[in-house]
């Protein structure tokens, strides 16, 4: 299996102190990698660095063997999908929310419609398309956030505690659906979590982070 992302000698500072130090990490193409560890371990920071939303002090990130510094921020971000713990939907319809990343990337109308329809159906939110985002329940909103990322067909999918804000029942349902859907996306996926059930259900391997450093990496 080939490497999609390689991280070398990465150091991230926040407020003058190191919050993430990764000597070396390979992320294999098509794999699902769970990031576990306590709050403040550096899980979200790693995801935001991989989204190029936080600039590291030093270190290299290689995508398909090439340094990402060769790509402009937006060019790089158009190859990833990002879902945060809170859905962060915009004050517009569900359909418009799902399609917004496609609009940013100037994906033509018919293709955009096809992708939105397909993923809305896969995530069971087809019937909500005309609803305003503000009227959705937490679980529905997170499904919209996932659809918004999936329609982009990202090479690298970054999920920051995607179930963290959901109640137990909603979390179980969404976990079941995501387990079935993730392999169909073909995306290399990194997700952060505190829950072993999520790791066991979704991940091929996991990394334990503590104090911004990798403690161990293991298969699931």
């Amino acid at each position: 299996m080939s490497t999609l992302v390689e991280i070398r000698d990465l150091l991230v500072h926040r407020a003058g102190r190191p919050v993430l130090e990764i000597v070396h990490l390979n992320i294999e193409r098509g794999r699902v990698l769970a990031l576990v560890g306590p709050n403040g371990a550096g899980k979200s920071t790693l995801l935001l660095v991989l989204a190029r939303l936080i600039k590291p002090e030093r270190g290299d990130i290689l995508l398909n063997g090439k340094p990402v510094t060769g790509l402009r921020d937006r060019e790089y971000r158009c190859r990833i999908g990002l879902v945060m713990q809170d859905p962060l939907l915009l004050d517009m319809s569900v359909y418009e929310n799902i399609a917004i990343g496609l609009r940013f990337r100037h994906v033509p109308g018919p293709e955009s419609v096809r992708r939105v329809e397909a993923w809305a159906e896969c995530l069971g939110i087809q019937h909500l398309k005309t609803r305003k985002a503000a009227t959705l329940s937490g679980g529905e909103a997170q499904r919209v956030a996932l659809a918004r990322a999936f329609v982009l067909q990202p090479e690298l999918l970054l999920l920051d505690e995607p179930f963290g804000a959901l109640d137990k029942k909603t979390r179980t349902e969404l976990l079941r659906d995501l387990k079935a859907l993730l392999p169909t996306t073909g995306a290399t996926t990194l997700f952060s979590t505190h829950d072993d059930r999520e790791v066991n259900a979704l991940a091929d391997s996991k990394i334990e982070l503590a104090d911004g450093k990798i403690q161990y990496e293991s298969s699931v």
Binding site: L48, L53, D73, L82, G101, F104
Partner: peptide
């Protein structure tokens, strides 16, 4: 975080 989310979706 909304700003980060929008940039993460590929917004200029």
């Amino acid at each position: 975080r909304l700003r980060l989310q929008l940039l993460g979706l590929g917004a200029s």
